[in-house]
Computed example of a mutant assay.
Amino acid sequence: MSQSPERDAQGAHFIGGTPFFASQHDQRLSYALYVPKDHTPQAPPLPLVVIQHGTGRSAELYRDRWKEFAIRHRCIILTPLFPAGIGEPGELHNFKFLKYQDMRFDEELLYMVDEVGERFNAQRERFVLHGFSGGGQFVHRFFYVHPDRLAGVSIGAPGRITQLDDTLPWWIGTADFEERFGVGIDLEALRSVPVHMVVGAEDVETWEINNVGGPNWMDGVEKTGRTRIERLRTLRDNFEAHGIKVRLDIVPGVAHQGVGVAPAVQEFVADVLARNLTS
């Protein structure tokens, strides 16, 4: 773990766009990186930006699309991969809700962050986290459990939202949150994290998010809005009612496309990195 990557036939795969590495904590899971090619173990650790995939598991696409950003803004991009089918064949949604059977996907991400910090000379105490669609579901729930680990969070077009409301059952709301996750909601910590929400202005298809009776359906979802735009506005209003400031971008001409909203996300992340947040 502590051995420095070498710029040779072996070490060449530890800089630039890397392969997917099995997590050393749980080898069912893996991650890839983009590491600026001039970064060395002797240099100050670079900030870490985590891009969480959605249902389609497009982790490699996000790694490659964030390459130029990593070079320009001097950071390391981490793209976790939580495979479909963990626990049961064809299972698609478990990571979005953080806890599934014996797994805590939020904690597994933190193990990856710590591993990357050690192996690739990255800051690991606090990092920027973005996710789109199913990734947007994961990141806002991760934010509730681990605000102390986040330098900023960008929530992209989640189809299902969890409001800060202890009168509503998990995962529509946060009733029994402490029993489930071992920590309470820390509103002061949440208020200290820069929050971005983003969705395409043409993201209006509802076939995937209004699937009554589906494995990721819960009665009450329909009350949060019909489209992803409406649901994200509901989440924004919920945050602001609790004193959490939100930047909301509704991107013209973009449907349900993570790549399409990427420029708005990168503008937010660049602003966070420019604040010179360190570990």
Rank of each mutant, 00 (worst) to 15 (best):
M1D: 11
Q3I: 09
S4Q: 06
S4T: 07
A12C: 14
F14C: 09
I15F: 12
G17H: 13
T18Y: 05
L33W: 01
L33R: 00
Y34V: 01
V35I: 06
P36C: 01
P36M: 00
T40P: 00
P41G: 13
P41L: 10
Q42I: 00
L48M: 08
L48T: 06
L48Y: 01
V50G: 09
G56Y: 11
R57E: 10
A59N: 11
E60W: 04
I71L: 07
I71E: 15
R74I: 08
I76F: 02
G87L: 10
G90L: 02
F95S: 14
K96E: 15
L98Q: 15
L98V: 14
L98E: 13
R104N: 15
E107Y: 04
M112D: 13
M112C: 12
M112H: 09
V113E: 08
V113M: 13
V116C: 13
E118V: 11
E125M: 01
R126K: 01
F127N: 03
V128F: 12
L129R: 02
L129M: 09
G131N: 14
G131S: 15
G135H: 09
Q137A: 10
V139A: 06
V139H: 07
Y144H: 05
H146G: 02
L150N: 01
I155F: 05
I155S: 03
I155H: 07
G156E: 05
A157G: 05
P158F: 15
Q163I: 14
G182E: 05
L187P: 04
E188K: 02
P194H: 04
V198P: 06
G200L: 12
V204P: 00
E205L: 07
T206C: 10
W207G: 00
W207C: 00
W207M: 09
E208N: 02
G213N: 08
N216V: 15
W217L: 12
D219M: 06
G220I: 03
G220T: 01
V221S: 06
K223E: 11
K223L: 09
R226M: 13
I229G: 08
R233Y: 08
L235H: 02
D237S: 07
I244C: 07
I244D: 03
V246D: 08
R247I: 07
R247D: 02
L248N: 14
V254R: 08
Q257F: 15
G258F: 12
V259K: 12
V259N: 12
G260P: 10
V261M: 08
A264W: 13
A264P: 03
V265C: 12
R275Q: 11
L277D: 05
S279E: 06
